[in-house]
């Protein structure tokens, strides 16, 4: 309530360097505090208001449009190096409301709230009539594909047994019929070759996450499963932030990377 004219705000342009700087601070905060789904990148600044704050400082209120990248939230790759998920892959947009305090030249994110939505089927169809749409992560085909892909990964693991942490996305392709999935796994205290009851396996205190892509083809004569996983550097037990984490490491079971292509992936 504007008592005595104390509550005043200004509205700089959305593309002002000042506004973009604050949006950048907010985007870093959002990605640093994202532990599931995919990293996001700024697409458009929708609105900005700057409130005077007593006794000093200013509070920026921003509405930001974001787009999903193909880097998982746990992937240590800097978001600047991540690819924006294209419309043909069924892009996902986000709307974020953020409040950032600027005081003595320092920025502090006060609040950040984001909601995300996949692009409409019509928009995807306009760009790519035959591209598969995003399926629900609890879709039966997606669930089966993740289970099969994880089982295939564990069958070839020479170390830990890996548990499913998150099904990140799934697409059911009609022709030729197959299901594509992306999911997150984490190492447990069980040895993959010796596990008899996966239910008793517990995640390691030092979390080691991996991001997997898999396909499952169900045929009359059998099935075909493909999976490849990128294992990330272990995270200390009390890790509350992903900042400062080193890059992905090569799994001991992985083939040696060639010097020309030092891919950090552990691929099975």
């Amino acid at each position: 309530v504007p008592l005595g004219g104390g509550m005043t705000f200004r509205q700089p342009n959305c593309d002002d360097p000042e506004t973009e700087q604050v949006a950048g601070v907010a985007m870093n905060y959002i990605n640093d505090n994202l532990f599931q789904s995919y990293k996001v990148i700024l697409n458009q600044i929708d609105k900005v208001k700057v409130w005077n704050r007593r006794p000093n400082g200013e509070v920026y209120e921003l509405e930001l449009d974001t787009l999903e990248t193909t880097c998982h939230a746990l992937d240590p790759t800097p978001v600047e190096n991540c690819t924006v998920r294209q419309v043909a892959e069924h892009a996902v947009e986000g709307d974020c409301d953020v409040q950032v305090l600027k005081q003595n030249g320092q920025f502090t994110v006060l609040t950040a709230r984001c909601d995300s939505n996949p692009d409409s089927a019509e928009d995807v169809r306009k760009v790519c009539p035959n591209c598969p749409l995003l399926a629900q992560t609890n879709d039966t085909s997606v669930v089966v594909a993740v289970e099969k892909a994880l089982a295939a990964f564990n069958a070839q693991s020479n170390g830990s047994y890996y548990q499913l942490v998150e099904t990140s996305r799934g697409q059911v392709v009609p022709v030729p019929p197959y299901t594509y999935v992306e999911f997150v796994v984490a190492a447990t205290d069980c040895v993959a070759k010796e596990v008899t009851d996966p239910a008793v396996c517990k995640l390691l205190a030092e979390k080691q996450y991996g991001f997997c892509k898999g396909t499952h083809i169900q045929r009359l004569g059998g099935e075909d499963v493909k999976v490849s996983c990128t294992m990330f550097q272990t995270q200390p037990p009390a890790a509350g932030s992903k900042a400062g984490g080193p890059g992905p490491v090569v799994d001991v079971a992985a083939p040696t990377s060639s010097p020309a292509n030092p891919a950090p992936a552990a691929v099975v």
Partner: peptide, 27 residues
């Protein structure tokens, strides 16, 4: 100064402070 009916509008680009530019594509 308000324009009178029939008068030409002010020349120059329309200023749209917000929303800002689209960096990738609109969903």
């Amino acid at each position: 100064k308000p324009a009178k009916p029939g008068m030409a509008g002010a020349a120059g680009p329309l200023v749209r402070p917000c929303p800002g530019r689209i960096r990738h594509f609109k969903v």
